[in-house]
Structures are given as C-alpha cells and as structure tokens.
Write a protein that binds this DNA or RNA. Structure first.
Lengths: 130, 130
DNA sequence: ACTTGACCTTGTAATTACTACAAGGTGCAT
DNA sequence: ATGCACCTTGTAGTAATTACAAGGTCAAGT
C-alpha cells in the first residue's frame, strides 16, 4: 500500500510516516517504479503500535525500546528482563491512574444525568487522595 | 513552599512550573518579600494532577479541559456532560490498550524467568485492536 | 563580616516530536 | 491532454518543554 493509504489506516499524517522512517522508527518501505513508498502489513502493524504507544504517553525513546523488545529472540533473556520489568511497572502505574480518573469521570456523569451537581474530585483522582 | 521544593515533590523542572504559570495552567503563586514564588498545597495537588495527566498522554489543551471540569459548579450540567463523556471514552480506550500491553509484557517476563524465549506479540498487543 | 553555594528572578535559545508548506514529478480518469 | 489526487525532497513552523545566561537572595560556615 502507498503512504496515503497507510496514513488513513492509522490516523497518521504522511509527513509523520516519512519522519519515522528518517528516524529509524519504521523500517524503510520498498519503492515502486515511480519511487513511491510501498508498505506491507508488517509496516501497518508497526505503525499502529507506534501510534498507540505514543497516545499512551510513551516517548519515542521508549517506543524504540518496546520495538526492540519485539525482536529480542537473538539476545539472551537476562538483557531484556530488566527493561521489560520497568516498562511493565510503568504500564501498571498508568492503569492505576487511569482507573482512578475513570471512576471520577463516571461519577461526574452519574451526577450530571441525575441533574445534580456533585462534589468534584477530578483533581484529587490523579493528585492522590487527601 | 518554594518552587524547588514543589519541583522535587512532583518530579517537575522549576522551569516547567514557571511555564505552566505563564500559560495559565497553574494559578500564580503568592510571592515572598524577596519575590520568590510561594506555593500552597492546592498548587501541589493541581500540579501533580497536570503531570499525571500529561504522562497519561493528555495534551495541554485536554488538561485545561479537565481542570475546567474540576471547577464546574457554576455551569449547568448539560454543558459539561458531553465533554465528560468524551474524556471518559478516551480514558477507557487507554485502559484497554494498556491492559493488552501489560498482559503481553508480563507474558514476556514469565518466559524470561523460565529462561525460555517465548513468542513475542508485543507489537500485536497494541496493533491488533479491532 | 564575608564568602560559598544553593536557591531564586527574568528572558532567550535549543530540543523533541511532529506538522505545514513549497516546488515539482506521477498516474489515472474524463 | 488535462485536471486532480497523489507522490517526492527539503525547509520552516508549532507545541511543550528544557537549558542557559546574567544576575539577585539568603542561610551557613570560616
């Protein structure tokens, strides 16, 4: 598929895809006779992963690490263990925070639907209980 | 408390705190006789919230919206309902994605601890949401 | 008293991760 | 064959920090 199709499929700007290629985040695509980039389903999966990970607040550096983990079969387990552990800890922290935020938002929604103005603890939900 | 203490307490650079004040994301702090910023616990809670929300992938614009929700008692419920609903939907999407990533990372960890090299589905974990 | 060093101030410049735009080539349908 | 949507490279602009410069503040140690 060409860059425009890949862009639509992933909600990414074509410029951003070329930027990822320059930065080595996505492998370079094959080229057609007319020098257009020609992407595979592998590229689609990788780019979808990158975009989701970015939306979840991982930096480009962390995304690189995660991508590297995905091709770790040539390296000994011990080398990746620590990295996996710290990424996992970060993911779990994010889930805890998001769950707190979710329950506060849905509490607000219930109050609204009952047309009441409830107490608002939205800041406290992420700031840590007082 | 002074800016350095607040910075340490929240893992934020002092420069970033001043930047948030310029941008109106944090209310301006009181000043001491020698013109140093003097922060309250309210500031600490707000800043903690802002930093967590940023880590979770919310943009500054979204953080502003969330902060605005926290002081909505003067506005009719109907005005905030739609915003709460869409923020909630986004939070839930993030939780789903992070949960998939978590289970893939912990699977990797189990493989590593058994000193086996397991199949790696880390890209698929985020790429495969239908 | 004085100086060291960790703090603070404002202001400006650089960095990261895109995003937009310019100038031009490609390819297919009307 | 020409309009239109697509592609190319390259450069410049934006958002959200982050770093740095030049200087003022203040508690502690000599």
């Amino acid at each position: 598929m060409r860059i425009g199709e890949l862009a639509r499929a992933t909600g990414t700007k074509a410029e951003t895809i070329r930027y990822y290629e320059r930065e080595g985040i996505l492998p370079a695509a094959d080229r057609t006779d007319s020098n257009y980039r020609d992407y595979s389903d592998q590229h689609l999966a990788s780019l979808t992963f990158v975009r989701r990970a970015r939306e979840l607040g991982f930096s480009i550096v962390q995304v690189r690490e995660l991508l590297a983990l995905s091709g770790h079969e040539d390296k000994p387990c011990k080398d990746v263990d620590k990295l996996v552990q710290s990424q996992l800890a970060e993911v779990e922290r994010k889930i805890v925070d998001l769950s707190a935020l979710r329950s506060e938002l849905s509490q607000m929604l219930r109050s609204c639907q009952a047309d009441r103005i409830g107490e608002c603890h939205i800041v406290a939900s992420l700031a840590g209980r007082p």
